[in-house]
Amino acid sequence: MTAPLLRVSNASKRFGGLLAVDNASLIVKAGGITGLIGPNGAGKTTLFSLISGFEPPTSGSIVFDEAEISGLSPHRRASLGIARTFQIVQPFAGLSVRENIAVGAYLHCRRRDEALDRAAVIAERVGLASRLDAPAAGLTVSARKRLELARALATRPRLLLLDEVLAGLNPSEVRDIIPVIKAFVADGITILMVEHVMQAVMSLCDHVYVLAEGRMIAEGTPAEVTREPKVIEAYLGPGAAARIASGAASHG
């Protein structure tokens, strides 16, 4: 068996009195899409910050491609091949779409014309070709999400962390963006995604982890974890699984 691309072992993150991530472990195998789900405030974004280097872990280890990375700064991790999008999009508002993407492209090329050309190619791939010279500040929500994707993609990541890229999109926009994400995987990029849109999780992810109150409470295929009583209770409250089961029994 080959080593996983990413291995988070017993990671914890404490903010004052709050243990936002509590001894969580997960493995992301190269290729495919791994999901990370959980109720609001579960610690998903915090776990992403630990992996991408924006927050130092309180304890635990993060191994990327067989090397410990938990001491490295975000930009070092980006150059190793870890890219992330932000749940709250962070465009370079004063720059055009092309210039935004070019910043990512510069990671692997020094020349301006090369970076700008690459930016145009990537804009095309995420469906932003028509907005290439538009200022990022004027983009719609859906276009901003695409811009997040495009910038991350421009760094030529091996592991792409997507934090709720589908949130705030209407169903038809979700339908349009899913093939874009699938195309990344076809290109050999491994994806770890946080997502609340369950329909997308079911159709995209091979393997899903469930985080609740900082702890990893379940893992498995999407179908497996959604049947798991612990998971249902994490979302719907204690006793919910039993109520649903008895409800199903009395109807059946």
């Binding site: 991408s52 924006f54 700064s73 975000p74 930009h75 980006a78 150059s79 890219a83 992330r84 932000f86 962070q90 465009p91 370079f92 508002a93 004063g94 720059l95 210039e99 070019a102 910043v103 990512g104 510069y106 990671l107 020094r110 020349r111 301006r112 970076a115 910038r151 991350a152 421009a154 760094t155």
Partner: peptide
């Protein structure tokens, strides 16, 4: 590239760092 990175830092430091900017 330095100029592009400098402007990126002005616009949003976190986003710049995520894209590999020191």
């Amino acid at each position: 590239r330095f100029g592009a990175y400098l402007v990126a830092v002005r616009e949003n430091e976190d986003a710049a760092a995520a894209l590999g900017v020191d």
